[in-house]
Design a protein around this nucleic acid. Structure first.
Lengths: 157, 157
DNA sequence: CTAGTAGCTCCAGTAACTGGAGGTTCAAGA
DNA sequence: TCTTGAACCTCCAGTTACTGGAGCTACTAG
């Protein structure tokens, strides 16, 4: 008989756009189940692993934390349960995204203003430095420190 | 004679809104100079330290990395040098902020669309889960992974 | 003198990976 | 069958920008 399709980790990596180390990391923290191994101890994945990893990656791209994803995955294990909680998690995520956009926009405004004032002289006269040194009772930015996470990992080479 | 004003670390912390540990951390990584010490080995800061720390904090709030701040601080040490580089650093920062806003906006769009499709049934029918599981050739989000840093530290308390 | 707060150093932990060392396995070609 | 080289393995350390705790010492008010 033909065996079902199994993938070595590199192939799974290619198909999902997720680095090999990251896949192993997800396994380590229990987000991905342990796959079958060859007699030589190499991992072999099946399509279900690929689906799960795709789910994780897409969720990460949408900015969900690994903890949120863990919860979402837990919920999907019980298909009869109400999807209220899923909705909650996504809604919370949306809220955070909105907050971050708001903060970044304020930040942009200040950066733009700062740059506009620079006339390109000596550092001693530099408005950018001046603005940065200025610590007036904190502009719009100082309050509400929230989630620092963003979609995607660090730059990959 | 009256001594010049010196602050213990807790007072500096209060005045700048920067945690005690964070101040010590900045010293450890060479961003803040080593302050004077009492005979009992406690740190005592002067107004110049406060200015420098304020500069660092404000820059952090604007999303500059510690490395960028280190560079900016280095540049301010030479007041006769052209402020072109300062401008460059700020401009790079602005660029990154713009990119992050763009990405977050795309993200928001997708989250909103996802949530709108949820009619609140069972998880088996949940559109949110479906969308997350879907790994079409990657929407607008998969490209351009950049700086993960955001204004402010993690939530404090 | 004592109590309590604030300070000290050192170490470990956070999120979400990434990279490398040093060794093994697999698959294809000779 | 042997060899070669890519891909795999585990384990560990590093990244960013802090944060928290243990266990100890200094300072200051009463």
């Amino acid at each position: 008989m033909t065996q079902i399709e199994t993938l070595p980790i590199g192939e799974l990596s290619r198909q999902t756009g997720c680095k090999v180390q990251t896949i192993r990391y997800y396994e380590q923290i229990g987000l991905m189940p342990e796959p079958a191994r060859t007699t030589g101890n190499q991992r072999r994945y099946d399509p279900r692993h690929r689906e799960r990893l795709a789910f994780i990656r897409h969720s990460r791209e949408l900015g969900f934390t690994l903890e949120a994803i863990r919860e979402l995955l837990g919920l999907t294990d019980d298909p009869d349960c109400s999807c209220e909680m899923v909705d909650d998690i996504a809604r919370t995520q949306l809220l955070q995204v909105n907050q971050r956009i708001a903060r970044l926009s304020a930040l942009r405004t200040e950066l733009v203003r700062m740059l506009e004032q620079c006339r390109g002289g000596r550092i001693a006269d530099c408005r950018v430095i001046e603005v940065l040194a200025d610590h007036t009772p904190a502009s719009c930015l100082s309050q509400d420190h929230e989630a620092p996470i963003e979609a995607g990992g660090r730059h990959a080479g």
